[in-house]
């Protein structure tokens, strides 16, 4: 464990807590893409299958359990409890356009042709693009609530910090996974225009509005 990865995990944790806080305090899921949350849930389910078979550390297990349960809870809140406030008309990104290519790529490009490894690879590829429905929804509505933009900033930063973690592990631990690194770079790049808007708008106290 290094500082980059620890701070990255804490950003990821903060993002998920921020999202749950937004939903719980505003009693609304307005502006949230249920599809992205479903995809994130799928990422955790396919990545943490080894939760009970492969013990790494108490920290690792506790974080995996929290990520799994919170992502499932978020999907539940969006599609059942606060369904009335779910803006389905703007959450129209076709998930199959992400699921099928990621599944095919995971079958073709992986480290080992075994079920666990292919599912792990699928979760890595899917996580890189899972935010697209949410970014697409914001581009359609033209705006995002401030707390939603904080959520996105924390979520985008987490994988950016992981890239630093991979650099660190490459130089100091001679440890490198090209699949995780390439997907992580793609994932972080997808947030760049949002990062620009967040820093120039939200941090100036303005609401996140996309140029019409």
């Amino acid at each position: 464990m290094n500082a980059f990865r620890l701070v990255g995990d804490l950003c990821h944790l903060a993002a998920i807590v921020l999202l749950l806080l937004k939903i719980w305090k505003s009693r609304s899921v307005a502006g949230l893409s249920g599809k992205s949350q479903i995809l994130f849930g799928l990422v955790f389910v396919t990545r943490y299958l080894d939760l009970v078979t492969n013990f790494v550390s108490p920290y690792n297990t506790i974080m995996k359990v929290f990520f799994l349960s919170s992502s499932i809870a978020t999907v539940y809140l969006i599609y059942t409890k606060f369904k009335a406030t779910y803006d389905g008309n703007h959450d129209t990104f076709r998930m199959e356009f992400l699921l099928i290519p990621c599944a095919l790529l995971a079958i073709v490009v992986n480290h080992e042709f075994s079920p666990m490894e292919i599912l792990w690879t699928f979760s890595i590829y899917l996580e890189a693009v899972a935010i697209l429905p949410q970014l697409f929804m914001i581009s359609k509505t033209g705006e995002a609530e401030t707390i939603t933009s904080h959520y996105l900033f924390a979520l985008g930063s987490y994988r950016g910090l992981y890239i630093m973690n991979w650099l660190y592990r490459y130089y100091y631990e001679n440890n490198f996974d090209v699949i995780a690194v390439v997907a992580g770079i793609v994932q972080t790049v997808l947030y760049c225009d949002f990062f620009y808007l967040y820093i120039t708008k939200v941090l100036q106290g303005k609401k996140l509005q996309l140029p019409a």
Partner: peptide, 10 residues
């Protein structure tokens, strides 16, 4: 192999 160690990440 190196990748196996990466499975210690979240």
């Amino acid at each position: 192999c190196m990748e196996k160690q990466m499975k210690d990440e979240l």
